[in-house]
Amino acid sequence: MTTTTAPADIDRPAPEQLTIVPLRHYGRWIAAIAAVTALVGVAGSLAKNGNLHWEIIGHFLFADLIFDGLVTTLWLTVAAMALGLVLGTLVAVMRLSTNPVLYGMSSLFVWFFRGTPLLVQIIFWGYAAALYKDVLIGIPFTDITFIQVETNSLLTPAIAALLALGLNEAAYASEIVRAGIQSVDIGQTEAAHSLGMRPALTMRRIVLPQAMRVIIPPMGNETINMLKMTALVSIISAHDLMSNIQDVYAQNYQVIPMLVVASIWYLALVTLLSIPQAWLERRYGRGSGHGERVSPLRRMFAGAVTRPARRPKNAKETAL
């Protein structure tokens, strides 16, 4: 049997001699340059615009009246989100219940508070005294009364704003929590029940910790949205940031500069709220691949600082 050998590939270039040409993304660079140019143009136009009255903005940016409004805005945001989250979790569990009464009442709650505008709800709670002069607690359909309080003294503008924001948020939070609970495999619940765990303990120890991975991102957005929605309570003079801003420009007629002051503070607060939201998303996203994401800004700085590894020039260098 004759064995033939292939001729040596003398003319074929070695793999290490091939030239690697990186792909150029000229369209991305053109779009980035156009975007930066437009941004610089807008920023320069605003900086040179005398109608903004930057001296008024600087004077009121750190005024005591603004800080008083910030305190009200912050506690309204925290309290309304806490009320909405607790009540929303309860409503979500009721909507998942097999009891038709609980399911019907929770569905009615979500239908009403999601179906009416938040501004209407704020005005309703602010002027509830026009509907009920006194708040009575007693035995229904009898004259027996345990507590009687005047509505105007009980529902102050701040309390009315809290109720409106909290109840409205509860309707949306319930849907977020319900979606998170339903995202957990039913086998987890069945396994917990087979071990003798009660439904309430199963929900608290097994289902909710896993559902947080789905709940946290939209709930963080709801918190940021709640911070901005507090501006609507200025309609009932709840002395929040926007209410105090309106009081100022109602006197000095500098509407645009005062709105710039409000925008600066809202942007600053939203930026601060985004930090714990990102941390919670990374914490509850561990092990799923979603918590390991790195922001484009961090990738950009990491690429600028870290030097790429040197590519070997030939096969001999690779062997060494």
Rank of each mutant, 00 (worst) to 15 (best):
residue 3 T to W: 02
residue 9 D to I: 00
residue 15 P to D: 07
residue 20 I to H: 13
residue 24 R to V: 14
residue 25 H to T: 04
residue 29 W to M: 13
residue 35 A to D: 07
residue 36 V to K: 07
residue 36 V to I: 15
residue 38 A to Q: 06
residue 45 S to P: 01
residue 48 K to N: 07
residue 48 K to G: 09
residue 50 G to T: 14
residue 50 G to V: 02
residue 51 N to V: 09
residue 55 E to C: 02
residue 55 E to R: 01
residue 58 G to P: 02
residue 63 A to G: 10
residue 64 D to C: 06
residue 65 L to H: 01
residue 65 L to C: 02
residue 67 F to A: 08
residue 70 L to Y: 10
residue 70 L to N: 08
residue 71 V to D: 09
residue 72 T to Y: 08
residue 74 L to I: 15
residue 75 W to M: 03
residue 82 A to C: 14
residue 83 L to V: 15
residue 85 L to V: 12
residue 88 G to W: 08
residue 88 G to M: 05
residue 91 V to G: 04
residue 93 V to Y: 00
residue 94 M to Y: 07
residue 97 S to Q: 06
residue 98 T to I: 10
residue 102 L to F: 11
residue 102 L to C: 00
residue 103 Y to H: 14
residue 105 M to N: 10
residue 106 S to Y: 10
residue 107 S to C: 00
residue 123 I to R: 11
residue 123 I to T: 14
residue 124 F to S: 08
residue 126 G to Q: 09
residue 130 A to G: 15
residue 131 L to S: 10
residue 134 D to M: 12
residue 135 V to K: 10
residue 139 I to E: 07
residue 139 I to T: 14
residue 140 P to N: 08
residue 146 F to D: 07
residue 147 I to V: 13
residue 151 T to H: 10
residue 152 N to K: 15
residue 155 L to Q: 07
residue 156 T to L: 12
residue 159 I to A: 14
residue 163 L to E: 03
residue 164 A to E: 09
residue 165 L to Y: 05
residue 166 G to V: 06
residue 167 L to E: 02
residue 167 L to S: 02
residue 171 A to C: 03
residue 178 R to A: 12
residue 178 R to S: 14
residue 179 A to P: 01
residue 181 I to G: 06
residue 187 G to I: 03
residue 188 Q to W: 04
residue 188 Q to M: 08
residue 192 A to I: 00
residue 199 P to N: 07
residue 206 I to K: 06
residue 208 L to A: 05
residue 208 L to S: 09
residue 210 Q to V: 03
residue 212 M to K: 05
residue 212 M to V: 04
residue 213 R to Y: 03
residue 214 V to D: 12
residue 227 L to I: 02
residue 233 V to P: 03
residue 234 S to H: 09
residue 240 D to K: 03
residue 240 D to Y: 12
residue 242 M to Y: 11
residue 242 M to D: 06
residue 246 Q to H: 01
residue 249 Y to P: 03
residue 249 Y to E: 02
residue 251 Q to K: 12
residue 251 Q to M: 02
residue 252 N to D: 14
residue 253 Y to N: 11
residue 254 Q to F: 14
residue 259 L to Q: 07
residue 261 V to K: 06
residue 263 S to Y: 05
residue 271 T to L: 04
residue 274 S to H: 09
residue 280 L to N: 13
residue 285 G to C: 01
residue 288 S to A: 11
residue 299 R to L: 13
residue 302 A to I: 05
residue 302 A to M: 07
residue 303 G to Q: 04
residue 304 A to V: 05
residue 309 A to S: 11
residue 311 R to A: 09
residue 314 N to D: 15
residue 314 N to C: 11
residue 320 L to R: 12
